[in-house]
Write a protein that binds this DNA or RNA. Structure first.
Length: 512
RNA sequence: GGCCUGUUCGUCUAAGGGUUAGGACACGUCCCUUUCACGGAUGAAAUAGGGGUUCGAAUCCCCUACGGGUCACCA
């Protein structure tokens, strides 16, 4: 009764994986892991015309980055059900297609593309709204249903090109159960005779899905909602092959929609919607066009995965931050939504920020080391860790650190002139020189000693913090935004503070 | 257009016949801080419409509207 849980993610290497695909993989992974089963990566490379070099490697690398590694399949070590690339499984499909013919569930078709086109035109002229190769039109086409057995034999013997088409019944109720949608039923009269085996001997998705999921002992076939309309074809083929008692459970996941709700997110979107739609960078091999991925944009894989999990699923509690392990525990297919979810980049950034805040300063110091090195910023590890502690609650991405806090490592490049003009009073110049001198005399020079000096100075001269704070802050950092100024002065040290104040005061005078 | 599928704050969602319809993002206000953020508090904000069933409906049924998917020798 209890069957080993085996799920698979089966992308086609026709380009990069987009985030919708990653989410499908994630759900398959979570479900398999939760039930102690297997998660398999199968590459659906049956369309040689659409093959894109580098796509398979991309898919593997992207899954690795996300931490949703298959335990079986292309790139992750073969298991007992290989090969895991459909092109390498080519020989087996024909056998099953022929088995379907013998069972009366499929037939040979010899029509050329032009003949099919002609048929569609004729049907349209006759007022048929949706012309297709189906239980009615197949009678008028060149196939083993309409042609005599002898002629079919002769054509086959002559090596005439042919495809094998599914023979969808004329008028039958086809019903199947979906873990998310419940019972879904179709009338077969609405469904066309899909090509199962192409003229080049390769299967189409329809045959490949049925044959591979059966032979790979897949227990749960999960895929996006866009597959729902072709499910009856698959169900009927399963029946024709006599596998209906061993069939997997289906679940069709809700689609991830564009932020405006107009259509599903697709590969074609790249990063031109204002946010990445790919997990990692992708360079189109023909156009050379680069689409920035979540990884390069500065997202943590944990945050990206966490966000994806919450698109169409939720745990039913108010917890939102989940590690992969926690997701595995909490995941349940019956908490997956039915309706498509619009993507929200703000929320995605929020997830990243949550993870950023939780990183230790030591971890962050390691992570930002490359960007500091790239800018030739040299500093001790202790300095960098303090820098991280001061900047992390103000940033969303680690990529932003060196840019946001450049003044930790080099002199101020841009001054907030608006605030200077408002706050700098030329007549107070000697007063500030005095403060500067007092600061230089401070032998401790830590945040609290500096604060003392400044506060005494304010009191002595009947000023307010608003008269001094901004001046100091802009002198040191150039901006009104940033970490606590006294702590920053302590970190930078007396020499740098002295130098910056000197440069700044001259600048201020020239501005006012 | 046919078929399939869906519809709770702007967005992601909770509430599986009985709640002042809850949370999060984004937005407003206040507190903390005489910076910015973080954090805390608070506000505004939703059951698409119409019919049933029921003592009682966001939840069940029907109709309408609207959205999405799909209609290839692509997956």
């Amino acid at each position: 009764m209890s069957r080993r849980v085996r799920t698979r993610f089966a992308p086609s290497p026709t380009g990069p994986l987009h985030m919708g695909g990653v989410r499908t993989a994630l759900f398959c992974y979570l479900f398999a892991k939760k039930h102690g089963g297997d998660f398999i990566l199968r590459i659906e490379d049956t369309d040689q015309n659409r093959f894109v070099p580098g796509a398979e490697e991309y898919i593997i690398e992207a899954l690795k980055w996300c931490g949703i590694s298959p335990n079986e399949g292309v790139g992750f070590g073969d298991g007992a059900y290989g090969p895991y690339r459909q092109s390498e499984r080519k020989p087996m499909y024909k056998k099953y297609a022929e088995q379907l013919i013998e069972a009366g569930y499929a037939y040979y078709a010899f029509d050329t593309a032009e003949e099919i086109e002609q048929m569609r035109e004729n049907m349209t002229k006759q007022g048929v709204q949706n012309p297709s190769y189906n239980s009615v039109t197949r009678q008028y086409m060149k196939n083993s249903v309409s042609l005599s057995a002898d002629e079919v034999k002769a054509r086959l013997a002559n090596g005439e090109p042919y495809v094998i088409r599914h023979k969808m019944p004329r008028n039958e109720e086809i019903k199947f159960h979906d873990l998310i949608h419940g019972w879904v039923s179709f009338n077969s009269s609405q469904i066309d005779d899909k090509v199962l085996l192409k003229a080049d001997g390769m299967p189409t998705y329809h045959l490949a899905h049925v044959v591979d999921d059966y032979t790979m002992k897949i227990s749960h076939a999960f895929r996006g909602d866009e597959w729902l309309p072709s499910a009856p074809t698959h169900i009927h083929c399963v029946k024709g092959l006599g596998w209906e008692n061993e069939i997997w459970e289906y679940a069709h996941f809700p689609l991830i929609l564009k932020p405006d709700g107009k259509g599903k997110l697709s590969k074609r979107d790249g990063d031109r919607l204002g946010f990445p739609s790919f997990p990692i960078n992708w360079t189109d091999p023909t156009s050379g066009e680069l689409s920035v991925g979540y990884r390069e944009r500065g997202f943590f894989p944990e945050a990206f995965v966490n966000m994806l999990a919450f698109l169409g699923w939720n745990p039913g509690t108010e917890q939102e931050i989940f590690s992969l392990e926690e997701l595995t525990q909490a995941f349940s297919i019956d908490r997956v939504h039915k309706a498509g979810a619009r993507f929200d980049f703000d929320k995605t950034k929020w997830f990243n920020q949550q993870y950023l805040k939780e990183k230790s300063n030591a971890e962050l110091a390691d992570l930002i080391a490359p960007q500091l090195a790239a800018k030739n910023y040299n500093a001790s590890n202790a300095f960098i860790q303090t820098f991280c502690s001061m900047i992390k609650e103000r940033a969303t991405f680690i990529n932003d650190f060196s840019e946001m806090g450049y003044y930790f490592f080099e002199d101020v490049k841009i001054y907030d002139e608006f605030t200077i003009k408002k706050k700098w009073k030329t007549e107070r110049i000697s007063l500030f020189e005095e403060l500067n001198a007092e600061l230089l005399n401070d032998s401790t020079f830590n945040a609290s000693s500096i604060e003392h000096i400044v506060k005494d100075f304010i009191a002595k001269n009947s000023l307010g913090m608003g008269d001094v704070g901004p001046i100091l802050r802009i002198a040191i950092t150039g901006t009104m935004q940033g970490p606590p100024i006294f702590e920053l002065m302590e970190l930078l040290g007396k020499e740098i503070v002295e130098k910056r104040i000197k440069i700044a005061f001259e600048k201020f005078n020239s501005l006012v």
